[in-house]
């Protein structure tokens, strides 16, 4: 059954940009106040620290709100995911690196897809998020991570890229949509240049390789993976395994 989500805005009046975007997407946005009794699934738009409370009390999604962001982060994909009984999470690159929202998201996924192995979802999501943040949004390659000295250089470049406000503000959006009878489809989308998933999967990976394992691991622990959105979205499907 489809149920349009309501966007709860934390921090006073709903900004005009959010009201406009919500209207375009056919959902309501209202201030997040205590004891609000809403029958529809809710998505909280708030500063990242509020994610500490987890996906509780009917919350089906979290969108990080930063007043400095030029573009309203409410998107059709998050609305659709929640409307289909799923979950969503959207945060900027800096926040994804300095915090670990994937853990909260995985805990919520466990509730709507208890038949899927915890380890598989958490590993696949960690891999996909790492790829989206490091290679996608920050545009860093793995070739430096082949020695301790290279790792130090990699860390330096990572800090340099994060200091660029445009790169730091790039978003990663995660959605989870239940699949009948007991599976789940998880998509991770970034704002990078995209990549050719088929090409990457064909690359041979030596057992002692120091990089390039991520996609192969995702393929091992999931039932199916596919790329879309010009290589910016990776979708991983998990089916119940007896």
């Amino acid at each position: 059954m489809m149920s349009r989500p309501v966007i709860l805005f934390e921090g006073g009046e709903v900004p005009a940009s959010l009201a406009y975007r919500a209207g375009r997407l056919g959902v309501d946005a209202c201030p997040h106040v205590e004891f609000l009794d809403i029958a529809a699934p809710c998505v909280l738009m708030a500063p990242l620290p509020l994610l500490e409370n987890g996906f509780t009390g009917g919350l089906r999604g979290f969108i990080e709100y930063r007043p400095e962001d030029a573009v309203c982060p409410l998107s059709a994909e998050v609305v659709e995911a929640v409307a289909r009984g799923g979950l969503c999470l959207s945060a900027c690159t800096t926040s994804m690196l300095s915090s670990d929202p994937a853990q909260v998201f995985c805990a919520a996924v466990r509730k709507i897809a208890p038949a899927i192995g915890d380890m598989m979802v958490e590993l696949a999501l960690a891999e996909a998020l790492g790829n989206s943040i490091i290679h996608g949004n920050l545009g860093l390659q793995s070739d430096l991570r082949h020695s301790l000295a290279g790792l130090a250089e990699f860390n330096t470049r990572l800090a340099q890229r994060l200091a660029d406000p445009t790169l730091a503000a790039r978003r990663v959006t995660v959605t989870a949509i239940p699949m009948a009878p007991s599976g789940i489809s998880i998509s991770v989308t970034d704002d990078g240049d995209g990549f050719d998933i088929e090409h990457e999967l064909k690359k041979p990976v030596d057992v002692a390789a120091k990089s390039g394992r991520g996609l192969g691991l995702i393929r091992k622990v999931s039932s199916q993976i596919e790329g879309s959105n010009d290589g910016r979205t990776l979708t991983m499907r998990f089916l119940r395994t007896e």
């Binding site: 958490e122 790492g130 301790l148 290279g150 790792l151 990089s211 991520g214 691991l217």
Partner: peptide, 17 residues
């Protein structure tokens, strides 16, 4: 508690060093 492929990469670098 948990490790991803980037963690594995770091361990492989440590091994080589």
């Amino acid at each position: 508690e948990f490790m991803d492929s980037a963690g594995l990469s770091m361990i492989m670098i440590a091994r080589e060093e």
